[in-house]
């Protein structure tokens, strides 16, 4: 296991420090706009975790992730608005409905690879968006839904940025936990085998179709949950928020963060969201620089930012090594690999 050292150290003290730091963020970051951004990062990272399982682990590149995100948002919002469903019920339903959509798109996609699969997922995302625009009686068309209720639990309504922070990051933590468990299990291993060589996996007894459909369902369910939170978080939802560009944005976060790692999703969402904020001072040149950074990352960091982890660890262990005797060198060399 590559990340063995990292996780074992995290399991100790580091874990608690990390939790404490995360919990204190809303008290340290008092600027509500920044807190809003941090909350958005959390929502995006959920979408990207799903995308990483689908694209990074299973190798099924999706450029229609915004479609699943939209399904989640509208399912949950409509359930809450029309049927007065509680938030958590709506969220679970959003995940289920999005997963069903995932299965629906997975079936024609089963026979497709590479650019052909990309096209099918692009098409799917666009179909969803166009249905949202045109199915006016239900979706209110291009104007979108307004007045999506805030989540409430046991009479306590989540309304402020700060309370949303805790809601969102509780879900993100849960999402990461489940995703990490899946990725390190037999399921994750089978996903990777399909990515590496589908035909060999099938020859070794893997029912590849079932696993590919499952990967689509999981990827979609994550986007669905994120969508549900997003709807309640912003109170409004319109088809403009779920375009092809948004799907591409999620894909960028996934690749830049490193799509073969669950934490890469978080790193990617943070990096690209903050980057586009930090470049704001450059005004009209902002997106030029943004594009250039995207380009350079794609060229110089093929594994994304999380790919730097092993390199960094190697570097640190090398520094440690210098201080130790020859015997220890051998040992840490083996561990550092």
């Amino acid at each position: 296991m590559k990340s063995h050292k990292l996780t074992s150290s995290l399991k100790g003290l580091h874990k608690w420090v990390l939790i404490a730091v995360v919990l204190s963020i809303p008290f340290v970051v008092t600027n509500l706009y920044y807190l809003h951004l941090i909350n958005l990062i959390g929502i995006y990272s959920l979408v990207v975790i799903g995308l990483n399982i689908l694209s990074g682990y299973t190798g099924q590149v999706s450029m229609g992730q915004a479609g699943f995100f939209a399904v989640g948002t509208y399912t949950s919002a409509l359930l809450m608005m029309k049927l007065q469903a509680p938030f958590w019920v709506a969220t679970v339903m959003a995940a289920i409905v999005a997963a069903i959509f995932g299965v629906v798109i997975a079936i024609p996609a089963l026979r497709l690879t590479g650019p052909y699969l990309v096209m099918a997922t692009v098409g799917f995302g666009e179909i969803i968006r166009l249905v949202l625009v045109n199915w006016v009686p239900v979706t209110k068309g291009a104007a979108g839904l307004t007045g999506i209720p805030a989540p409430s639990f046991f009479g306590f309504t989540v309304f402020s940025e700060r309370s949303f922070f805790y809601l969102i990051y509780a879900v993100v933590a849960l999402g990461i936990l489940v995703a990490v468990r899946i990725s390190r299990s037999k399921i994750g291993r089978t996903f990777m085998a399909i990515r590496e060589d589908e035909l060999a996996a099938e020859s070794m007894g893997v029912p590849t179709n079932i696993y590919k459909v499952a990967a689509f369902a999981i990827g979609a369910a994550y986007a669905g949950v994120a969508g549900s939170i997003f709807g309640s978080f912003s109170g409004v939802a319109s088809p403009d928020g779920f375009t092809f560009d948004d799907s591409v944005g999620f894909l960028c976060m996934s690749v830049i963060g490193g799509n073969r790692s669950i934490f890469g999703a978080l790193i990617g969402s943070i990096t690209l969201t903050l980057l586009s904020e930090l470049l704001r001072f450059m005004q009209s040149y902002r997106l030029i620089v943004y594009g250039a950074i995207l380009l350079l990352t794609a060229i110089f960091m093929p594994q994304g930012l999380s790919g730097l982890g092993p390199i960094l660890r190697e570097f640190l262990s090398r520094r440690k090594r210098d201080k130790k005797s020859y015997d220890d060198v051998q040992c840490s060399q083996r561990k550092g690999r």
Binding site: L251, V255, S284, R286, A292, L295
Partner: peptide
């Protein structure tokens, strides 16, 4: 660098964003 093909997509996407802006 024999990068994965997804990186070519992201890289040329970067080019697209630059051109557009």
């Amino acid at each position: 660098r024999s990068s994965p093909s997804i990186n070519v997509v992201i890289g040329t996407l970067g080019v697209a964003i630059i051109c557009r802006n």
